[in-house]
Design a protein around this nucleic acid. Structure first.
Lengths: 230, 230
DNA sequence: TTCACCTGTTACATATCCGTCGCATATGCG
DNA sequence: CGCATATGCGACGGATATGTAACAGGTGAA
């Protein structure tokens, strides 16, 4: 990771408005952002900045995102950098081609900014398992995404799949309040239509699971806003 | 959207039955809906109502949806408003043309109302992402929108949802005097029928909350004008 | 098949908050 | 000073958000 501790992201997107919004959010999330609005600049900046991850728009003038992706994945010294592709509207063909060229993940516009950043963090964790991030910790709760296990005060907790994903999401940004809609997006998925009250039920179940061996309730309800950890 | 109120949607659809159903559902989902049944009215209402998002029928008498979309995307002050196009025809040609004219998303009739609203929410999140990373401060009051927490002299304050939104609004421009009407607009939402005296009551409650552990009253009453911070 | 487990929805109880009213108090003005 | 109006604030009935048990399916393993 970058010298200063912040993960470096190279953001390549030709549409200024979208790029600005994304850059703003990435910086707010603790990324060091380098921007490019075309593929040629991007290729140069990859060498100059040595980003930890690349977010790449599919459609761009001159050198397209696909082409940039393909080239980077051919060079041994850049192959290891995770690439997340952005694309407008999802023909299945595109999705396949995107992954075929070696992209590590693929996000369809319009995307949830939250989700995009969650995926970026996931990619970073995948590539950089040595750094902090393998195991999420918050107070006496420890979560190992690898083994899918959750501990509290050294006891192994048993939770269902949805509870687990919910906890992962909350633990990735302790303190941050997630609205029910955001949680539906992040945990259930963007195109799943489920009543928002379902979130309440699962939060309740997660709470019970987290407290099955005692301990305080680590989940905070923020009336009118959502839930957060701590 | 105002700072805390409902997101405003402009619904443009010439077929009354469809428009009514959609409006009903959008309102049930917490949107403030303005309706138009033709492109000309729509253009006017965009300026008058400043919607956060526009749902636009493709086929309409006089000025078509495509045309409205094209015009709006040409004007800098309206370009940022997300537009979701509705169309009865699903030919690929249309899809392409729809996105080419600058629409941000595209839904083909017959559509699932749930899906349409999920997409509307997705667009809103994209354009107006949460106020991330910014911590508002004024004298010894600190407000973190992300964690939804308010501190005064390092103690955590407990305030209700409306008090919170009110404080956010005031803290975003310390010193500025907000009239009761402006506060109703910004905190409660545009077309909410509420007595202006309600603002007084909530300012009172906010004051009490801010002083629950002592300290001076940070809210200034400007007789005949409104309230401000500091 | 049965069984154990998980899921999303519903219904209801409860806690919390909201908006309004009434009256007290403060302010400005002639 | 006395009056008119603006603001402060306690109290109350009702609205709304949340917690949670119960239920009816769904899934996959044995």
């Amino acid at each position: 990771m970058g010298k200063g501790g912040q993960p470096r992201v190279l953001l390549v997107e030709d549409e200024p408005a979208q790029r600005t919004v994304l850059a703003y959010n990435l910086e707010a999330e603790g990324f060091a952002v380098t921007q490019a609005d075309n593929g040629e600049d991007a290729m140069v900046l990859v060498d100059e900045e040595e980003p930890d991850i690349i977010i790449l728009d599919w459609m761009m003038p001159k050198v397209s995102g696909i082409e940039v992706c393909r080239r980077l994945k051919m060079r041994p010294e850049t192959r290891g950098i995770p690439i997340i592709m952005l694309s407008a509207r999802a023909e299945e063909v595109d999705r396949v081609r995107g992954l075929e060229t070696g992209a590590d993940d693929y996000v369809v516009k319009p995307y949830s900014v939250l989700e995009l950043m969650a995926r970026a963090r996931a990619q970073l964790r995948r590539v950089r398992p040595s750094t902090a991030g393998v195991v999420l910790e918050h107070e006496d709760i420890r979560l190992d995404p690898e083994s899918h296990r959750v501990y509290r005060a050294d006891k192994v907790l048993k939770l269902g799949p949805t509870e687990f994903k919910l906890l992962v999401t909350l633990m990735e940004r302790p303190g941050r309040v997630f609205s029910r809609e955001q949680l539906l997006d992040l945990v259930w998925g963007r195109d799943i239509y489920v009543d928002t009250r379902t979130v309440d039920v699962h939060v309740g179940r997660l709470r019970k699971s987290l407290m099955q061996f005692g301990g305080a309730d680590p989940v905070r309800t923020v009336r009118g806003a959502g839930y957060s950890l701590g």
